[in-house]
Amino acid sequence: MLAIDNAALAGRLAGVSAALEPGRITAICGPNGAGKSSLLQCLAGILRPDAGAVTLRGEAIATMHPRTRAQAIGYLPQDGEVAWDVAVRSLVALGRLPHRDRGEAQVAAALTALDLDHLADRPVSRLSGGERARALLARVLAGTPRWILADEPLAALDLGHRHSLLRHLRDAAAGGAGVVLVLHDLALAMNHADRVLVLDSGRLVADGPPADALDVATIETIWGVKARWLGEPGARALLAG
């Protein structure tokens, strides 16, 4: 269980509480500036809330050894920065840093899981956007974390890569990992998340199964857009306006 209790962060979060379960995909949604990335970074232990606490299995992550925390929680930032033009295999191997081992088996497994074997020796500068996103996710998977926290991992991906990456995240959740995603695309959250947290101005305004948390009334209140859901559960599209 990864839990955040009454967390406040000046100008970004105002008393957010949620207990997240492993083995599920939880989406964090909300308009720009709602505090989604801040919440994710608090859960990852990168930001420390001014008030409140984040706990992993009951232990405060603020007092955990950073390496122990890093072994348990993998975080994928939105910007996808890679400062030096390392090869894909070296990039993925960075996921083993908290374990202080080469973790060749885990690196190989992560490369295979994301169909990167044939690109293992290619410099990241020569990857397409989709390949790069897969390599960055493989870096997280190579660390075999119990929690995968990703900030907009699907942004800038085409439809095929988006669904391929979602399949990998679903596989990770099926394998027992907790997956927490910041998503702008409400249809993706509706169709692929098990639970959705909706934030607005740093407050948690809805929390529950996607059909409840993202009902049309909430969308109109929070995003200011009249919209309706079309299609069947699991394959819904949002029609706005």
Binding site: A70, P77, D79, E81, A83, L97
Partner: peptide, 20 residues
């Protein structure tokens, strides 16, 4: 050295990898 390697992925990712 390890901290510098973690920084390849940027500041936030490096912190998430245990870089202090």
């Amino acid at each position: 050295a390890r901290g510098l390697d973690a920084l390849v992925l940027g500041d936030a990712a490096a912190r998430s990898l245990g870089m202090e």
